[in-house]
Amino acid sequence: MKHIISLLMENEAGALSRVAGLFSARAYNIESLTVAPTEDATLSRMTIVTSGSDEVIEQIIKQLNKLVDVVKVLDLNDGRHIERELMLVKVKATGPFREEMKRMSDIFRGRIIDVADGSYTIEVTGSCSKLDAFLEALDKAAILETVRTGASGIGRGDRILKI
């Protein structure tokens, strides 16, 4: 099953490679990984989307906790949470595509953020599956380029990951 794991770690050189190295060394899946400093500049927050059996996820959490630079780990799937990812898609906007792409963007609450003679760049945010659905819905022949940030996640209500 897919899990979103959030963690806080010391904002030190090499901390990211310790996490990435752990996943490759133990052959765990990474679907996406995002990281950036938090409001406290000494801490970084990372969101990892991974998948595996309950046993594997349990090991991943334990192994992450074992890393000396990692301060706190939370499996967002243990409770209610919100997941968001941002995607930019460059699509063909010629002939019939020009109208079609605008319509698709509207349906998925996307925004066209760059307009050129032959193309649009559409920004879409949402859960990973919404972004997948958007790409599914587009005519494959129209897609020129895509870039996704990977998911960020946060617990709902009182669920707070902080030290």
Binding site: E55, Q59, K62, Q63, N65
Partner: peptide, 11 residues
Amino acid sequence: VDPSSISKRVK
């Protein structure tokens, strides 16, 4: 002493 040793190969 190491939580990750527990339930790693055997439940």
